[in-house]
Simulated assay, not measured.
Amino acid sequence: MKAAEKARLYVPDALAPGAAVTLGAEQHHYLRNVLRLAEGDAVTLFNGRDGEYSARIEKLGKKEAIAAVATQLRPFAPAADIWLCFAPIRQGRIEFIVEKATELGVGRLLPVQTQRSQIGRVNTDRLSAHAREAAEQCERLDVPQIAAATSLDDLLATWPAERRLFFCVERGAADALLGAAQAWPKAAPCGLLVGPEGGFAPAEQDRVRALPQAVPVSLGGTILRAETAAIAALAILQSVRQN
């Protein structure tokens, strides 16, 4: 594998031909000690707004790494306007949701505390780091936003009027997500709401169903784990929007 194909890095700096970008400490360690690259080797950079650029390692010392930006490889294109609202689950599995949702092109992830949520505190910094790493690996041009955890009531109270909310229910009458997604314009903003293990409490289901933008949907006849439901729902939704 060529060095240029090994290192694809997210940077917060502006990108343009001729710019010099100082890389972070973790990226310095990754290039120098993991990939064992050297000055002059190629890397790829993106920042979520200027597109993707080729670059060369201009300096790779013991404490600092600087990349010289060359040419644009791809212009910027934002991810689909899809929000994933999910109940926090335990460490290891919540990172799995963030990683796979990033690969599937979600635009924003919103942890939502529910009555049966297992986790009280959500480390958004750690989840954001996982999202950046996933974006680097899957070659998307932006990084999804990780919102601060909110309550279900606050989520519903502030839900945008123009955004459809596909409410994934475990039991009860509901149309399949596939058909519901096909009935919504492909480019229109939407979101998915997936509950915790144990599902939403009955009173919570009633409050979601009362939201005019909410459409209850089914993911099939079996009971899915929380992370499975989130990824399955995203895959179905993206399959409709990309065809």
Rank of each mutant, 00 (worst) to 15 (best):
A67D: 01
L178C: 00
L15A: 08
D13Y: 06
S54I: 00
Q115N: 05
L178V: 05
A70Q: 14
S54Q: 13
L104G: 04
S151G: 15
R241M: 08
L35F: 05
A187I: 00
A232P: 02
D142Y: 00
A180T: 07
P185H: 02
N243D: 12
K100W: 04
Q72V: 10
V34P: 10
T124N: 02
A174S: 10
D154E: 14
E64Q: 15
T114D: 06
Q118E: 15
R49Q: 13
P78E: 02
E204V: 08
R241C: 07
R32S: 15
R207S: 15
A232I: 04
G24P: 05
A134M: 04
R164V: 12
Q118C: 01
V240F: 06
D142F: 01
A232S: 15
D142W: 01
G221H: 09
A232Q: 03
C190M: 11
C190G: 11
L224H: 08
A214T: 09
G24N: 10
V208W: 09
E95M: 11
Q182G: 13
G18P: 03
W83E: 14
A173L: 02
A4L: 06
R49V: 07
E26K: 12
H28L: 13
A147G: 08
P216A: 05
L104D: 03
R108L: 10
A180V: 09
N33R: 13
W184I: 01
N243L: 13
L127A: 08
K62R: 15
S218I: 10
G198N: 07
D13C: 09
I119F: 02
I236N: 02
A176C: 03
A161E: 15
D50F: 05
F76G: 00
A65T: 15
K100M: 05
K63D: 14
F200R: 01
L9F: 13
A230N: 04
F167D: 11
Q91K: 15
L177S: 09
L219E: 07
R209P: 01
L237I: 09
A42S: 14
E227Y: 06
P12H: 12
R225N: 02
T102E: 08
L193F: 05
L211H: 10
A232M: 12
S239H: 14
A70C: 10
K186H: 07
P75D: 08
